[in-house]
Computed example of a mutant assay.
Amino acid sequence: MTWLRAIFAAGLSVIMPGAGHALVRDWLRAAVFAGLFLAASAFFLPLDQLTAAGPITSVDQALEQATVVAENTDPMAQFLLSFLSLFAAIDATFRALSYSSGEGTDAAEPTCPECGKEIDADLEFCHWCTTRLEPVEPEAETNDV
């Protein structure tokens, strides 16, 4: 199930950077990637020509606007937008697979065995992935004298 979630997060991030991060509930990264992509799109794409063409009401108009974008966008801008999408997809995949990006985690905090995120010790399930958790029994203390 984790691989399916990672593939789905990557696919969403290719379509719209930040959407894959929203799927894995990484809200800050979702906002950053979506904001970067929308800002780069507004800066590099020929929006004046697209808005002059009017709203898309048919498949032919959508193909016509896609042709306008492809012809009037320089290769460097296309590379930058593609790079942002690819980087967001790779990052969302690693986040969905619960690989850490080097953040320091406190060993005293309990983590979910399934998704690896911090959990509340009072709950019987992970509030991130809903995995049922076994109750933790306190260890018997031994007094070594």
Score class of each variant (00 low, 15 high):
1 M>Y: 04
68 V>E: 02
95 R>N: 12
55 P>H: 10
91 D>F: 10
54 G>I: 03
119 I>T: 08
21 H>Q: 14
79 F>Q: 11
44 F>T: 10
16 M>A: 07
97 L>D: 03
68 V>T: 12
28 L>W: 14
99 Y>E: 01
34 A>G: 08
76 M>W: 11
120 D>H: 05
114 E>R: 08
47 L>D: 07
130 T>H: 14
24 V>F: 00
34 A>Q: 02
113 P>N: 09
98 S>L: 04
14 V>Y: 15
92 A>R: 04
134 E>G: 13
74 D>Q: 13
82 S>I: 00
112 C>A: 06
85 S>Y: 03
70 A>V: 00
107 A>W: 14
87 F>C: 03
43 F>R: 11
73 T>A: 03
99 Y>T: 04
81 L>I: 05
133 L>S: 00
29 R>E: 11
82 S>Y: 01
15 I>N: 12
5 R>V: 15
112 C>H: 05
117 K>L: 13
95 R>E: 15
106 D>S: 06
5 R>M: 13
130 T>P: 07
124 E>G: 14
9 A>K: 04
72 N>I: 03
31 A>K: 12
12 L>T: 00
52 A>E: 15
132 R>I: 03
52 A>V: 00
51 T>L: 05
130 T>M: 14
80 L>A: 13
7 I>R: 00
103 E>H: 06
104 G>M: 14
